[in-house]
Design a protein around this nucleic acid. Sequence first.
DNA 1: GTAGGCGTCG
DNA 2: CGACGCCTAC
Lengths: 259, 259
Amino acid sequence: MKLATWNVNSLRVRLPQVIDWLQQNPVDVLCLQELKLPQDKFPLDALQAIGYQAVWAGQPTYNGVALISKTEGTQVQRNIPHFEDPQQRVIAATYDSAKGPIRVISAYCPNGQAPDSDKYIYKMQWFAALENWLSDELQHYPHLAILGDYNVAPTDLDVHDPKKWEGKIHVSPAERAAWQKLIDLGLHDAFRHIHPEDPGFTWWDYRRGAFRRNAGLRIDHALLSTPLLTHCSDCLVDKSPRANEQPSDHTPVIVQLDL
Amino acid sequence: MKLATWNVNSLRVRLPQVIDWLQQNPVDVLCLQELKLPQDKFPLDALQAIGYQAVWAGQPTYNGVALISKTEGTQVQRNIPHFEDPQQRVIAATYDSAKGPIRVISAYCPNGQAPDSDKYIYKMQWFAALENWLSDELQHYPHLAILGDYNVAPTDLDVHDPKKWEGKIHVSPAERAAWQKLIDLGLHDAFRHIHPEDPGFTWWDYRRGAFRRNAGLRIDHALLSTPLLTHCSDCLVDKSPRANEQPSDHTPVIVQLDL
DNA sequence: GTAGGCGTCG
DNA sequence: CGACGCCTAC
């Protein structure tokens, strides 16, 4: 079973690339973030035409997440329960595997703007709510995978120029502490587990030729529950879509689960 | 010698189509309208790369005209003399031919919005200034051609559905009278001269599949001075660019001058 | 319907 | 830099 995550930065604009990518990479579940389209504008037909199903949570202009899958997802959950939020940042569904149900979550964690901003406070509250919810989910679903754009680079290895990023969002101590709390729930960073030394950047700023200079961050992650990690044989970043014509600033991360 | 006119509705967007069209149709002078780019953003390099020169008058967002030519134009005139106007709607230059100099003008006449609007008044004033200037120009340049988007359909033959257009801009009596005053200067409608019966639409609204239904207007014209008309052996509308992927709403008009 | 700007976001 | 919504223009 293959899972993947991709912040597409507008599904309307990126749909041809997503279709193309899925045909080249027929993963079982693709988690999307930043759909940037209202609930009723989701391009379900185009995805069904290539043999995929989908569940999604959209809103106009901002955010929006989806799960694109070969089989139908059940127990679909939009947003974090008990965390009232007009922003659509989470969708979860359960998929069948040979080893029983797998809970898959697509998450678009807040960006946080700047460490002294209201949006940073929201980011921290959001992570607290996520952690609280995940501790619950892990009770119900031992096989749990949460993939998405975390907007956190967990360590300096995940940052092209740690000096430059000091004191900025994505790397601040509070954000890294929030990340650690997720890990402490019994979740594992699949890419870092497989590649202890590879930076594995997943995002490059559109500006100043960041991709060309490989001036990136690793902020898109696949977190796996301990029982799932035992089945994880590979995790990789597919840099190629970042070199497309009209690219997203993020690129996909793929996890191979042998089950 | 071949002259042509094309309202491109953003040269930035249409540049590849213009390059392509010039390579298929290596006219001597191409008059462009609605560049929609500031003076310093004109894509001179791309045109030079295919062997063309250019003079232009740009402004941000709106209007803007150019003369793209194989040989250098001289006595370049931007705007109508003695008619102060921040809107860039006219550029003129002189080109050499076997029979002596030819004055070529690219004109983007005002749209006029609606017959009861301020913009309509401006349109009428603009035409008066144009007429005044052209009577002068004709004294200096017996071989004069003024090509462009006139935003006037001279007769009902130039309108797909004259009933529907009654009382609207492009066809109002005052606009047609302004057109007639240009004709009365000793200018001749090249297309209508060659094709007395062919509607020869040059513009189709982007909306409601107007091009598919051929619901167009003939509002782009080549006017020739009497001495030039004697050399005019053909005039045609090239509808093909209107069928392009991201088309302008206008399509080129080409004049063949045997000199 | 298809342009370009602006302001906002990331 | 490149999304979107809103505005204006044609």
